[in-house]
Structure formats: structure tokens, C-alpha cells
């Protein structure tokens, strides 16, 4: 089974990935699957009714608002970084967590590098498929790099201005 890095109780671990990501032209396989938005819209109801866990993979130009009504039954939202420079998934992740209160897995896929770990974790990502061969230990170190942060985001960390008030 393929691996991903998963956040659990504030720590990052290597974890097996129970989901199969299906391309649009790929035949269905048994078990839990992650689909494109269009395939989810076409086949999601049926697959969910079969008792599978279903995730949706959004391209960086697809809006998370498209999933707003389906979120309670979606197990994973995989947000794709076509290039690490494409910063749209950070906004998508924060909206999922902070606006829609989404509690399922938000996974970073695509051009995912350890240098982004800090930003991703702060925006509410809790699962990662690194493209640079880095592992959970390196990600853990990267996300613990900064003892303080200046903003409130989706990770519940206390920003500097609130630390100072305490």
C-alpha cells in the first residue's frame, strides 16, 4: 500500500494510504477511492451508497465551494499543487477548515516539497504526499521550525499578539 505522511495528535507519522486515486479514464477498483471533481459528481452517489469511503481531488483552479454540500460525506479532500509555486490550495484548505468546518482529511498532493510543510500545516492540511522523497521525520522538523507565528490560521496555534496578551 502506498504511504503518505499523516498528522495525528500534533505529530507527523508515515501512514499507509487506504485510498486509491483514480484517474478519470481508469477502471474502478474495489475499496476506498479518490476521484476528480467531475467523476465524483458523476459517480460519487453510487460509490458512497456501496459503503466506500470517497475522496475528491481538486485541481488548484477548482473552487472548494463546489463541494460545500457534499463535505459531510467526503472522507478526503486532496488539493493539488501543479507547481509548488501555485499557492491557491492554501486558501482552499483554510476555507475548508475555517469556513466550512471540514473535519475530514485535507491532503496535499502534486508538487509537494518539505519547504512548504510549515505553511501547509498552518493552513489545515493534515496529510501529505511529498514529491521530493522526504519523510515524516524531515517534515516533523520542518513544521517545528518556528517557535512562534504571527497569524491565526487553521492549525489552532496561538499567534504572537495573543501570546503577548497572556
Amino acid at each position: 500500500m502506498p504511504m503518505r505522511i499523516k498528522l495525528r495528535d500534533g505529530n507527523l507519522y508515515p501512514a499507509e494510504d487506504p485510498f486509491t486515486t483514480l484517474a478519470d479514464d481508469q477502471d474502478l477498483v474495489p475499496g476506498d477511492v479518490i476521484l476528480s471533481l467531475s467523476r465524483f459528481q458523476a459517480e460519487g452517489d453510487r460509490l458512497l451508497s456501496e459503503g466506500r469511503a470517497v475522496g475528491v481531488r481538486l485541481k488548484s483552479d477548482e473552487e472548494v465551494e463546489a463541494l460545500a454540500y457534499d463535505l459531510p460525506r467526503i472522507a478526503v479532500v486532496a488539493l493539488e499543487f501543479p507547481k509548488f509555486r501555485d499557492g491557491r490550495p492554501y486558501s482552499s484548505a483554510r476555507i475548508l477548515r475555517e469556513r466550512f468546518g471540514y473535519a475530514g482529511e485535507v491532503r496535499a498532493v502534486g508538487d509537494v516539497l518539505r519547504e512548504q510543510a510549515h505553511f501547509m500545516l498552518r493552513c489545515g492540511f493534515d496529510a501529505f504526499e511529498p514529491a521530493d522523497g522526504t519523510g515524516a521525520q524531515q517534515w516533523e522538523a520542518a513544521t517545528r521550525r518556528f517557535r512562534h507565528v504571527y497569524q491565526r490560521a487553521a492549525d489552532g496555534r496561538t499567534p504572537a499578539f495573543a501570546e503577548r496578551e497572556a
Binding site: 501555485d86 492554501y90 510549515h118 505553511f119 504571527y150
Partner: peptide, 14 residues
């Protein structure tokens, strides 16, 4: 300055 420093959402703008 503080708010924008390593802003998690806005460090990879267009």
C-alpha cells in the same frame, strides 16, 4: 509587517 511575515496562506501568491 508582523501579519505578513511568513503568512501561511499568502507566501505563494501569483
Amino acid at each position: 509587517r508582523q501579519w505578513s511575515t511568513l503568512h501561511p496562506e499568502f507566501s505563494f501568491l501569483p
